[in-house]
């Protein structure tokens, strides 16, 4: 075989090195994803919301959630005149309770926070807010969960940032942490203020 011409040997060598190259590329890809997962930039269970960058979905006014006396609809959100955080929550959801202190802090800082109780008993949600404090400026409830589906909600809590033109600018699925508020929510609020 040493007699074979090099011109024929080279492609053969390249072909036989192909599996190594392919496996290395695959391995690097997996490594990159693992690193992103560790850094929190990749969540295999996360679903990107297609609303980001688009106008909020149109929905008729939802009924009020006590202690509020009036609910709200898409028109009210668009007429808010300043950036608003919309938070979907439920009293039966444990991560919502984890998130609650962050919402209270945001409310104290004067950020307008609009809440939508997702598939909740009105009394249970009211009791929760009475017990842990009510961070919401506006409160409505989506008993059937249909409006939430229009927002692409797949679990609670989820939070959206709506700019003054009614365009969705930010979306966070899962509880907001202090880190997340500081690194993403606050800067974005500042940007669209």
């Amino acid at each position: 075989m040493s007699g074979a011409r090099p011109a024929r040997v080279l492609p053969r060598r390249l072909l036989l090195a192909l599996p190594l190259v392919a496996a290395a590329a695959g391995g690097l890809g997996f490594y990159a994803l693992l690193r992103r997962m560790e850094a929190g930039r990749y969540d295999p269970h996360g679903v990107d919301n297609p609303l980001v960058g688009h106008a909020i979905p149109t929905f008729a006014a939802l009924p009020a959630q006590a202690p509020a006396t009036t609910g709200f609809g898409a028109a009210d959100l668009r007429a808010a005149g300043r950036p608003v955080l919309v938070n979907f929550f439920a009293s039966w959801c444990v991560p919502c309770r984890i998130e609650h202190p962050q919402l209270m802090a945001l409310a104290r800082a004067g950020v307008p926070l609009w809440g939508i109780a997702y598939k909740d008993h009105e009394a249970a949600a009211e009791a929760l807010l009475a017990e842990e404090g009510n961070p919401y400026h506006q409160l409505a409830r989506d008993e059937s969960g249909r409006v939430s589906i229009d927002w692409g909600i797949y679990g609670v809590p989820e939070t959206f940032l709506i700019d003054r033109a009614g365009i969705v600018r930010g979306h966070w699925a899962g509880p907001l942490s202090a880190d997340l508020v500081a690194s993403e929510v606050r800067p974005m609020l500042g940007k669209y203020a």
């Binding site: 929190g40 444990v94 509880p175």
Partner: peptide, 15 residues
């Protein structure tokens, strides 16, 4: 930190 929270979140929904 965020991963932790994401995990809790996923866990509670999936359970």
């Amino acid at each position: 930190m965020r991963v932790m929270h994401a995990l809790i979140f996923a866990f509670l929904l999936v359970l």
